[in-house]
């Protein structure tokens, strides 16, 4: 009894809001809302930015994970700390930090602006940066874990067969951690898709260029368009649950 009551309360806290969405959902208007221009624009923008952010995270994050898992040097734990900070940092703070670095008066941003005339804040590229900033740790942690459990002696054998470090990584190490990379990429993509705080702070909320799905939902609820907000929320929930179920099957399948 002592355990049952709090666990039921906790469950209610998690389930009731979603149930509320289902109850209040304007089922009759669902197709019309989903196919409205604003929503379609936001969906398209979200899909594109989350996918690009995931690719960025893969390109940068897999090497970081390799360094964390396979090398030993004094600064390694510091690197791990830096990489995982976005996991616990409020995304809005991340957005502010991005502004300080890449804003027009930021440390790097000012130089980029003067030298190349490139400005990142309040652009679609800024959205991708905000998403990658927040989602990178999910990928790095997943891939590092996979690398740690893969047998390093395969690398040794590959080396004795004349393979360079790069060949070994490409043909032996990466294939052996492919499931972990895939799982990390999916989590990373889901996190990028749901990103709000860093995006709105660093990239703003401009329809078509930076207003992604979560921002669209926030704008809708703020402007009194509850129905649109509910439909977008349901859409995000369906995607999240779908990804979690898919990953669960992956984890259970490999366990």
């Amino acid at each position: 009894m002592v355990l049952l009551v709090p666990s039921l309360l906790g469950l209610a806290l998690l389930v009731l809001p979603m149930a509320g969405l289902l109850v209040r959902a304007p089922w009759g208007r669902l197709p019309a809302i989903l196919s409205s221009a604003d929503v379609l624009t936001a969906v398209r923008l979200s899909l594109v930015t989350a996918t690009v952010a995931t690719v960025v995270c893969l390109v940068c994050g897999v090497p970081i994970a390799w360094v964390l898992a396979r090398t030993a040097w004094p600064g390694r734990s510091l690197l791990r700390g830096v990489v995982t900070v976005p996991l616990v940092l409020p995304p809005v703070i991340g957005g502010i930090a991005l502004l300080m670095a890449f804003g027009r008066r930021g440390v790097v941003g000012g130089w980029l602006d003067e030298t190349f005339g490139v400005s990142l804040p309040f652009t679609t590229a800024g959205v991708v940066m905000a998403q990658a900033f927040v989602a990178m740790p999910f990928l790095v942690v997943a891939v590092e874990g996979a690398l740690r459990t893969s047998d390093r002696r395969y690398d040794d054998v590959a080396a004795t067969l004349g393979a360079s470090a790069w060949t070994t990584f490409r043909r032996v190490t990466l294939p052996s951690v492919a499931p972990g990379v895939l799982a990390g990429a999916v989590l990373c993509w889901a996190r990028a898709l749901g990103e709000f705080g860093a995006t709105v702070t660093f990239a703003g909320s401009f329809p078509g260029t930076t207003r992604t799905l979560p921002l669209e939902a926030y704008v809708a609820i703020g402007s009194g368009d509850t129905d649109t907000a509910i439909v977008l929320s349901l859409l995000m929930i369906v995607v999240s649950v779908g990804i979690l179920v898919g990953l669960r099957r992956h984890w259970v399948g490999t366990a």
Binding site: Y154, V157, A158, T160, A163, P175, A178
Partner: peptide, 26 residues
């Protein structure tokens, strides 16, 4: 130098032919 170890360590994601050809490809 070539090594053969107790648990063989054949690359699990490559088939038998690719395993044997690995050193030449590398």
């Amino acid at each position: 130098v070539g090594i053969v170890v107790q648990d063989y360590l054949l690359f699990p994601r490559l088939n038998v032919l690719e395993n044997v050809a690995f050193g030449l490809r590398a």
